[in-house]
Computed example of a mutant assay.
Amino acid sequence: MPLITVELFPGRTTEKKRELIKALTDTYVEVCGGKAQAVTILLKEVDPGDWGVAGKSYAEIIAESKVQA
Score class of each variant (00 low, 15 high):
Met1Asn: 13
Pro2Ser: 15
Leu3Thr: 15
Leu3Lys: 15
Val6Met: 13
Val6Trp: 12
Glu7His: 13
Glu7Tyr: 12
Glu7Cys: 07
Leu8Ile: 15
Leu8Glu: 13
Leu8Gln: 15
Pro10Cys: 13
Pro10Asp: 14
Pro10Gly: 11
Gly11Val: 13
Gly11Gln: 14
Arg12Pro: 10
Thr13Leu: 12
Thr13Phe: 13
Thr13Trp: 09
Glu15Met: 11
Lys16Leu: 14
Lys16His: 08
Lys16Tyr: 07
Lys17Val: 06
Lys17Gln: 15
Arg18His: 12
Arg18Pro: 04
Glu19Leu: 10
Glu19Gly: 04
Glu19Ser: 10
Leu20Trp: 10
Leu20Asp: 14
Leu20Gly: 11
Ile21His: 03
Ile21Glu: 05
Ile21Val: 15
Lys22Ser: 08
Lys22Thr: 14
Lys22Ala: 09
Ala23Asn: 14
Ala23Gln: 14
Leu24Ser: 05
Leu24Pro: 04
Leu24Gly: 10
Thr25Pro: 09
Asp26Ala: 10
Thr27Glu: 11
Thr27Arg: 02
Tyr28Asn: 07
Tyr28Pro: 01
Tyr28Trp: 11
Tyr28Arg: 08
Val29Ala: 02
Val29Ile: 06
Glu30Asn: 10
Glu30Val: 05
Val31Gln: 09
Cys32His: 07
Gly33Asp: 10
Gly33Val: 03
Gly33Pro: 01
Gly33Glu: 11
Lys35Arg: 11
Ala36Phe: 13
Gln37Thr: 06
Gln37Ala: 12
Gln37Leu: 08
Ala38Trp: 08
Ala38Glu: 07
Ala38Gln: 07
Val39Tyr: 13
Val39Pro: 04
Thr40Tyr: 15
Thr40Trp: 11
Thr40Ser: 11
Ile41Phe: 03
Ile41Val: 15
Leu42Thr: 12
Leu42Ala: 12
Leu42Trp: 09
Lys44Thr: 11
Lys44Leu: 13
Glu45Leu: 11
Glu45Lys: 04
Glu45Trp: 02
Val46Lys: 06
Val46Gln: 07
Val46Pro: 06
Asp47Met: 02
Asp47Phe: 03
Gly49Arg: 04
Gly49Trp: 02
Asp50Arg: 08
Trp51Arg: 06
Trp51Ser: 10
Gly52Lys: 13
Gly52Val: 11
Gly52Phe: 06
Val53Ser: 11
Val53Pro: 00
Ala54His: 06
Gly55Trp: 00
Gly55Thr: 07
Lys56Pro: 00
Lys56Ser: 04
Ser57His: 03
Ser57Gly: 05
Ser57Cys: 05
Ala59Arg: 03
Ala59Thr: 05
Glu60Lys: 00
Glu60Arg: 01
Glu60Val: 01
Ile61Asp: 01
Ile62Glu: 09
Ile62Val: 04
Ile62Ala: 12
Ile62Ser: 09
Ile62Asp: 08
Ala63Asn: 04
Ala63Met: 04
Ser65Gln: 03
Ser65Met: 03
Ser65Val: 02
Lys66His: 03
Val67Pro: 01
Val67Asn: 02
Gln68Trp: 05
Gln68Asp: 01
Ala69Ile: 01
